[in-house]
Design a protein around this nucleic acid. Structure first.
Length: 335
DNA sequence: AATTTGACCAACCGCCATGAT
DNA sequence: GATCATGGCGGTTGGTCAAAT
């Protein structure tokens, strides 16, 4: 025996509430309390179902509801709680007096989620997006492919053009990951990337890849050097971060200790060593990493750097993130 | 000026948990 | 224990409005 629909087709009104209906509902509840929501509409003289009345009351008419923009403190609280509780909106709302679960959910979906994505974080896990990192060997292969293509026929050039957009996007996202621990040069936000020179950025990436500027032909000191990181093969990316944090003043959300990125794992990943034992990656993409990783050459590295320096990243963080995995994107484009 | 696009958010829908019978 | 009523929750939809084209 099935349940009747919550709002059956007895001619009950749906849709936006009128001020008169609001007034009727408030007046009734203030006088009698809501009691049984199912019985309330009839008693209050409303042509609505009980569920609709309950939602209207709890999400809008309740006298203790706070209206208006979320404060920075509230934003921070939501981010912190979401990192722990996930989409438990009612649990989050219970810790934000005057805010409803619906309001918080909407705020999350329209603002905070997008901001995290823009900053290169997975809004569900609050970790750096791992799909890009699981595709890293492919990106390296593509950088090498570019090196190869640069010296080949027009047909290959056409292929290159076809894949260029996908490659560019992949590189941008990859760059964003690499730049997460970009050390401060006075300004502390990720958006301050504008203040670094191209060469500083590229050198920083090279440092992160364990290819310190010391053995490259650029005289420009690397960012790693300037912040105490020693460039060269011993450079351990992320090691200067006790815990990964969202690199923006507004969203200093510490991740759980056990969730933080461990530098050796990242190094192994970057260098193409087996990363299957990494707990960080274990929960990432279901796509297996290829067992053979092409060696990262200086030229292919510079190819990545080319993409960085010619991109529009300096003006705005990349906002496009395809639904499909990068691996799919890249290999379907190229093959 | 007209149309399109995107952001915002109130409201709805369906599922689930719980308590009463 | 089975059934049903009710309330709560999270996901999604659709209307409105402003900005962009």
């Amino acid at each position: 025996m099935g349940r009747p629909p919550s709002c059956d087709e007895n001619g009950l009104k749906k849709g936006p509430w009128t001020p008169e209906e609001d007034q009727q509902l408030v007046k009734y509840i203030q006088k009698h309390g809501h009691g049984s929501w199912r019985a309330l509409p009839k008693l209050a003289g409303l042509n609505r179902c009980g569920k609709s009345c309950r939602l209207r009351w709890t999400n809008y008419l309740r006298p203790d509801i706070k209206r208006g923009k979320f404060s920075e403190e509230e934003e921070q609280t939501i981010l912190n709680l979401h990192a722990v509780l996930g989409n438990k909106w009612s649990a989050i709302a219970s810790r934000l007096p005057g805010r409803t679960d619906n309001e918080i959910k909407n705020f999350w979906n329209t603002h905070l989620k997008k901001k995290l994505i823009h900053m290169g974080f997975d809004p569900m896990t609050h970790r750096p997006r791992t799909d890009i990192l699981s595709s890293l060997p492919h990106l390296i292969a593509l950088a090498n492919l570019k090196e190869l293509i640069d010296h080949h026929s027009w047909e290959e050039q056409a292929l290159r053009l076809q894949s260029a957009e996908a490659v560019q996007m992949a590189r941008l996202q990859y760059l964003q990951c690499l730049l997460q621990p970009l050390p401060s040069n006075g300004s502390t936000t990720a958006n301050s990337i504008n203040s670094f020179t191209e060469m500083e950025i590229i050198n920083h990436i090279k440092d992160n890849l364990g290819l310190g500027a010391s053995h490259l032909d650029t005289p420009t000191p690397s960012l790693g050097t300037s912040t105490g990181l020693q460039p060269g093969h011993d450079a351990i990316p992320f090691s200067h971060l006790p815990d990964l944090q969202i690199p923006c003043n507004d969203y200093q959300t510490p991740l759980n200790k056990e969730n933080s990125v461990q530098a050796p794992e990242f190094t192994a990943l970057i260098q193409g060593e087996s990363s299957l034992n990494s707990p960080w990656l274990a929960s990432s993409s279901s796509t297996p990493s290829p067992s053979v990783v092409p060696p990262m050459t200086e030229t292919s590295l510079n190819n990545l750097g080319d993409a960085c320096s010619t991109s529009s990243y300096g003006e705005a963080a990349p906002s496009i993130w395809p639904d499909l995995l990068l691996e799919d994107l890249l290999f379907h484009e190229i093959s």
